[in-house]
């Protein structure tokens, strides 16, 4: 099939639009990277676009030597690992039993679980419940209340369904119980979806801050995003000093803001290329089921 000249021109036009879109996606990050590596004088003189001017690493040194910031990074990393593990255990515990078609009460459980997707009690009832449970200002409030996503559970269950029942039945004939079958058949065959959902949970926790804002007053346990919010919204460097304990040199604030943004972005940028192929398959799976 020979393409007409007009079709070819169209192809190139579409490619050009895609290139432009890619640039729009990356531009803000490149700009902030350039600012974080520039001297603050160059920023004030409007010289920094996409390439650093007056190259220096002061802002990064500054952020890295601030104990509040490094502690927050470490705490968020720990929290993310714990949350991802707890969430994956919970999601598996929920998804796996529900694939047994002859499990009594399965329909009722399904309905109970799905209903929570459509009706939500709202922020305040949750807040008051945590208060009554003594979870308020306790680190567990950042882990337990959102440890299970119905949507991700459905994705995992859909993946489990795609594993043929005959595999399970033959294992049952050999005398294997449900737990044994889970560990020796289902989990090993489900690595892509396990990787995808772990990534989704991890990104969700790394990026999340509203639960900490609402339910956690103890600043020690604030995740990195909330610290970042406070830094970004402190208008002058003096406010940064008083609010977050930064001993900031005046004039550095623009580059420091840029550097803190880069610090919270980099972990995502680092894992992103490696996990891409998994999460696209996972998201597609969720989409097809719908």
């Amino acid at each position: 099939m020979v393409k007409s000249r007009r079709t070819k021109a169209g192809d190139i036009g579409i490619a050009a639009i895609c290139l432009l879109l890619m640039i729009i996606c990356l531009l803000p990050m490149l700009n902030v990277l350039a600012r974080s590596l520039s001297s603050s004088q160059a920023i004030i003189r409007n010289e920094v676009l996409l390439w650093p001017k007056g190259w220096n690493l002061e802002a990064y040194k500054f952020v890295l030597t601030d104990s509040k910031y490094t502690w927050s990074l470490a705490w968020t990393a720990i929290l993310t690992v714990i949350c991802t593990f707890v969430s994956m255990v919970m999601t598996t515990l929920c998804a796996y039993p529900l694939i047994y078609r002859d499990l009594k009460g399965r329909r009722l459980f399904n309905t109970l679980i799905l209903f929570t997707m459509y009706f939500n009690a709202g922020t305040i009832p949750h807040y008051l419940l945590y208060k009554d449970l003594g979870l308020l200002n306790h680190p567990l409030v950042l882990i337990i209340p959102n440890s299970l996503s119905v949507f991700y559970m459905i994705i995992m269950r859909t993946f489990f369904y795609s594993i043929p029942d005959s595999l399970r039945e033959s294992a049952e004939i050999d005398g294997a119980g449900p737990i044994r079958i889970l560990f020796s058949i289902y989990l090993p065959l489900s690595k892509p979806v396990l990787a995808t959902l772990s990534l989704f949970y991890a990104v969700g926790r790394w990026n999340g801050f509203s639960d900490a804002l609402m339910y956690m007053n103890n600043r020690t346990y604030h995740p990195i995003q909330l610290l970042l919010y406070n830094i970004l919204n402190a208008i002058t460097s003096i406010e940064i000093q008083t609010q977050e304990g930064f001993a900031s040199a005046p004039g550095l604030s623009d580059t420091i803001q840029a550097a803190t943004v880069m610090f919270a972005t980099v972990p995502i940028l680092l894992v992103y290329p490696w996990l891409q192929k998994y999460f696209i398959s996972g998201a597609t799976l969720g989409a097809l089921k719908d």
Binding site: C18, L19, L21, M22, C25, L26, P28, M29, N31, V32, R35, V203, W206, N207, G208, F209, Q225, L226, L228, Y229, L232, D254, Q257, A258, T260, V261, A264, T265, I268, L269, Y272, P273, Q276, I280
Partner: peptide, 22 residues
């Protein structure tokens, strides 16, 4: 193109606000 276009979805709103502010 797809890889690049999916990337912003993984940034938190705080980070995007920081990027936008700058």
């Amino acid at each position: 193109t797809q890889s690049v276009a999916y990337l912003p979805h993984f940034l938190s709103w705080i980070i995007i606000a920081g990027l936008a502010k700058q």
